[in-house]
Design a protein around this nucleic acid. Sequence first.
DNA 1: TCGGAATGACCTGTTTACGTATCATCCACC
DNA 2: GGTGGATGATACGTAAACAGGTCATTCCGA
Lengths: 102, 102
Amino acid sequence: MAPDPFLKDLGMHFRKARMAAGLSQEQIALRANISRPRYRDIETGAAAARATTLVNIARALGMEIMLIPQAMVPAIQSMLQPGADDDDRPAFTSDVEEEEGA
Amino acid sequence: MAPDPFLKDLGMHFRKARMAAGLSQEQIALRANISRPRYRDIETGAAAARATTLVNIARALGMEIMLIPQAMVPAIQSMLQPGADDDDRPAFTSDVEEEEGA
DNA sequence: TCGGAATGACCTGTTTACGTATCATCCACC
DNA sequence: GGTGGATGATACGTAAACAGGTCATTCCGA
């Protein structure tokens, strides 16, 4: 029901970060204090985790959740660009317009 | 219940942003597509909103939720410092260590 | 003094995130 | 061919986020 593109995108960022860290879903779930099926739902965008769960997962992946004024989002996005020598982008915005040319 | 300090802090940031925008709880709740009692719970840290709800509230307040690698958090925090001429800080980190003065 | 707006606080009911258990599939590796 | 790890997916029960309603309190302006 209502596969929110935002949730899909968020889950994709989690997955990329997890892959980059070479960890399994179970390891992240354990660190984030949730079950594997639940972490899977979040990573695939099938469920909307709670605020506390989000933070736990982010930290398990070496990241933090931040509230950024919309005016500063572009500046921060460019700061996070890995200079085009790597194609994984750990940062995530709730802005769906972040979809750039694949 | 376990009044998570993280939720308190998150709610405080929402409240500051809302005050700065001169809006009522009801107006934000309406824009974020949730009920006022629920927005109140989130603002006071009494409830942990879902990921989708968090984004809706953030946007209603002119902000976005971002996933930031922990290594970059300090740099971004300093970027968000309002030059010391204003005491409201719209940005928010899940890092509890952000508690500075008062 | 009397409203009316904003907020805090509680209730009832529905939806859904969550834990736990279970099974199927894929893919190495032996 | 067989075994084990990682993942996808389902089911059931519980806890909590959600909607909607109501009442008390504070504050401000007519």
